[in-house]
Computed example of a mutant assay.
Amino acid sequence: MSTTAATLPMQRVPLALKLAFTAFMAVMVPFYWITYGPTNFLYFCDVAMFFTLVAVWTESPLLASMPAVGLIVPQAVWCLDFFLSWIGVPLLSMTAYMFDPGIPLFARGLSSFHAWLPFVLVFLIARLGYDRRALLYWTLLAWALIAVCRLFMPAPPPDPAHPNVPVNINYVYGFGDAAAQTWMPGWAWLALLCIGLPLLVFLPTHVVLQRWKGGDRR
């Protein structure tokens, strides 16, 4: 091995993954921007895709860990709901749109990233390690996104004149886009999101990832 080759840093994320992920984003971002508008990128999953894009190129453990701690569990639930919907017994019906013939197949194909993103994130953590600061940083980011979506983004139902404009982004009005939830006050629902997500989703994921690939990072 030459001296030059020996001093080059080892690439921990394969170039093929970097190029494939970038190519997917190069198609998805303009399509979503034109079809749904820029507010679509306030969804947790879309924000996670941008973090992951930067992470695959910079090989930053923190930038990979933040979407991992926030999205692995929700996207795993998406995968389960998709499979159960496919066999006719949906869990939450959150993937019903994937079987709607009224939505172009191309658009549904782009949404398939929900199915493979958690596996990409697990792979990145395996290669890069887990940065435990991700729990705090992703929680703060999630709270900021929830606040923005509740204060400034439209509530359900969708506007018939603009049916593609996202409503109820990040479920700040309830689990359905047809109407806001009515079984508790709006402030209580937001409190449930802001407390429940970190405690029931982010923290358990953090504990597992920290024990698996936490290393000594602060």
Rank of each mutant, 00 (worst) to 15 (best):
A48I: 01
D177G: 03
P61N: 05
I103S: 05
P14T: 10
W86V: 07
I34Y: 12
T58C: 03
Q210L: 12
T22P: 01
F123E: 09
L128C: 06
V77K: 07
W189K: 08
V148L: 15
S60C: 03
A96K: 12
F99M: 07
V56S: 00
F82Y: 15
F106A: 15
Y130L: 02
V69W: 00
S2C: 05
V54Y: 14
F21Q: 00
W212G: 02
A179N: 04
A155V: 10
L190K: 01
G196K: 06
Q75A: 12
S112P: 01
G70Y: 04
W183I: 07
A115I: 15
R217Q: 12
C194D: 05
A147V: 13
L121R: 01
F83E: 03
L128D: 08
L92W: 14
L192I: 02
R132D: 10
A178T: 12
F82K: 01
G88T: 02
L17N: 06
V77Q: 10
L136I: 14
A126R: 14
L15K: 13
G176D: 11
P38C: 07
P163E: 03
Q75T: 09
T95I: 06
P90Q: 05
M28A: 14
L124C: 01
M98L: 13
Q181C: 01
L91P: 04
R211G: 10
L199M: 13
V89A: 13
T3D: 15
V165C: 03
S111Y: 13
L80P: 07
P156S: 03
Y32T: 12
V122L: 15
P163M: 04
A144Q: 03
M49A: 14
L128T: 04
A5G: 15
L135N: 05
V207M: 12
F106R: 06
Q210G: 05
A188S: 10
L110S: 02
Q75Y: 09
L140R: 07
L128H: 09
G88H: 04
A107Y: 11
V201E: 08
V47A: 13
L105Y: 09
T95F: 09
L71T: 12
A107W: 10
A144I: 11
A178W: 11
T3Y: 13
Y171C: 04
S2T: 13
P198Y: 04
P163C: 04
L92F: 15
Y137V: 13
I103K: 11
L135C: 11
R127D: 07
P157A: 05
F152E: 02
P104K: 09
T7S: 15
P90D: 06
M28L: 15
F50K: 00
P67W: 08
T3H: 14
D100H: 05
P154V: 09
D100K: 06
N164I: 00
V69F: 00
L135K: 06
M94Q: 12
F83L: 15
F123R: 08
N164L: 13
F175T: 10
S93T: 12
L193Y: 02
